[in-house]
């Protein structure tokens, strides 16, 4: 089963994933019409700025066991085992924010949503685009990401790739490999700018 993998070191903070996510979770499904919908669809991936303004795409990790699921008062949060996805049933959610207190990554938002009962404020988070996946599409955030910060891969293969990277880096003859050279330069510049501004 493929899953969304985040490579934060490659994120330039362009926020296109947020737009694509909101559009994918709108009633009409396209960005141009989604912006005039009411309620306006919200993103379920949140690009934040790190300490040096480097981008960071923050999305639900679909933890197992999921702290939000265990904390959910009305039992609205459940796991769809076929896609390894933690989902929130908008009909059952009571907007109590118990999941906000439980989520160690801070990825749940609370608002009216096009896919929820009209006028009801509910907890909203990443659903791995399972509606798109049913149509044979990949998650919208991955599709739109231009830098490879978000990929859709078999977890085992992705783990193997990362393990190999780590193994190479600790080998005695290893030359320190930069896995994302352009991005490292960009983030170094951002960091320098921030530090210069701070020292002024």
């Amino acid at each position: 089963m493929k899953e969304v993998i985040v490579h934060p070191e490659r994120c330039v903070g362009c926020m296109q994933c947020m737009l694509a996510c909101a559009a994918a979770h709108s009633k009409t499904g396209t960005l141009i019409s989604a912006i005039s919908e009411s309620p306006r669809p919200g993103p379920r991936i949140h690009v934040g700025a790190g300490l040096y303004n480097e981008g960071f795409p923050n999305r639900c990790r679909h933890c197992n066991p999921a702290p939000c699921q265990m904390a959910c008062l009305p039992g609205a949060i459940y796991r769809q085992t076929t896609t390894n996805t933690v989902l929130i049933n908008p009909d059952v959610c009571i907007n109590c924010a118990s999941c906000a207190m439980a989520c160690p990554y801070g990825v749940i938002r609370y608002h009216a949503d096009p896919l929820a009962p009209a006028g009801k404020t509910i907890a909203v988070k990443c659903d791995n685009c399972i509606a798109r996946q049913h149509k044979g599409l990949i998650p919208a955030c991955v599709e739109v990401c231009k830098t490879g910060a978000l990929t859709f891969e078999e977890m085992d293969a992705a783990m193997k790739k990362k393990t190999d990277q780590v193994a190479r880096s600790i080998c005695a003859e290893a030359v320190p490999a930069d896995n994302a050279p352009g991005f490292s330069l960009l983030n170094t510049i951002k960091r320098a700018q921030k530090e210069i501004n701070l020292s002024r």
Partner: peptide, 20 residues
């Protein structure tokens, strides 16, 4: 390890806690 002011910032997010 980071300044507590970062945690008070309304734009705070989990990435600020992650060392690079």
């Amino acid at each position: 390890k980071i300044s507590a002011q970062h945690l008070l910032d309304p734009g705070f997010n989990v990435s600020r806690l992650i060392g690079r």
